[in-house]
Amino acid sequence: MKRYCLTLDLKDDAQLIAEYEAHHHAVWPEIKESITGAGITAMEIYRLGTRLFMIMDTTDEFSFEHKAAMDEGNAKVQEWEALMWKYQQPLKEAVAGEKWMLMDNIFTL
């Protein structure tokens, strides 16, 4: 098993944040299928203000490159991502087009 932690910001707008959370309380079945089909075995997203924090547990075979290739060919995932971008904004450290950013583990107990 591998674990990844990622972060992203939401736009600072209470209505948009409420809509974003509502979407995540009713994630489309096709999106759930694309997540598990890529080898992600568990995923959680937390929010504090506009900051999002995602924890992903994956199979040992999981790769971000394979997930990206799968997503590229999935029209429903592309529709979801376009919709989510209405609510999200890149971190200042992001390069153009980068959304969720991988975080470095600096402590483990």
Score class of each variant (00 low, 15 high):
M1Q: 08
M1P: 14
R3A: 12
Y4R: 02
L6T: 14
T7Y: 02
L8C: 14
D9Q: 13
D9L: 11
K11T: 14
D12L: 00
D13S: 07
Q15I: 12
L16Q: 09
I17N: 08
E19C: 03
E19V: 04
Y20L: 08
E21N: 11
A22I: 07
A22W: 00
H24D: 04
H25A: 14
H25D: 15
A26W: 03
A26R: 10
P29G: 04
E30M: 04
E30Q: 08
E30A: 12
I31M: 13
I31P: 05
K32H: 14
K32N: 15
E33R: 00
S34L: 04
I35M: 12
T36F: 10
T36N: 07
G37I: 01
T41V: 12
A42E: 15
A42C: 10
M43K: 08
M43I: 14
I45S: 02
Y46S: 13
Y46Q: 12
Y46E: 13
R47A: 15
G49Y: 03
G49D: 15
R51A: 15
R51E: 15
L52K: 03
I55R: 07
D57A: 03
T58G: 04
D60T: 06
D60C: 00
F64I: 00
E65H: 04
H66S: 09
H66W: 01
H66L: 04
A68W: 01
M70C: 12
E72Y: 07
E72V: 06
E72M: 07
Q78D: 13
E79L: 07
L83A: 13
W85K: 07
K86A: 12
K86W: 03
K86D: 15
Q88W: 02
Q89L: 11
P90V: 10
E93Q: 11
V95F: 01
K99W: 15
W100D: 13
W100F: 12
D104G: 04
D104M: 07
N105H: 05
T108G: 05
T108P: 00
L109C: 02
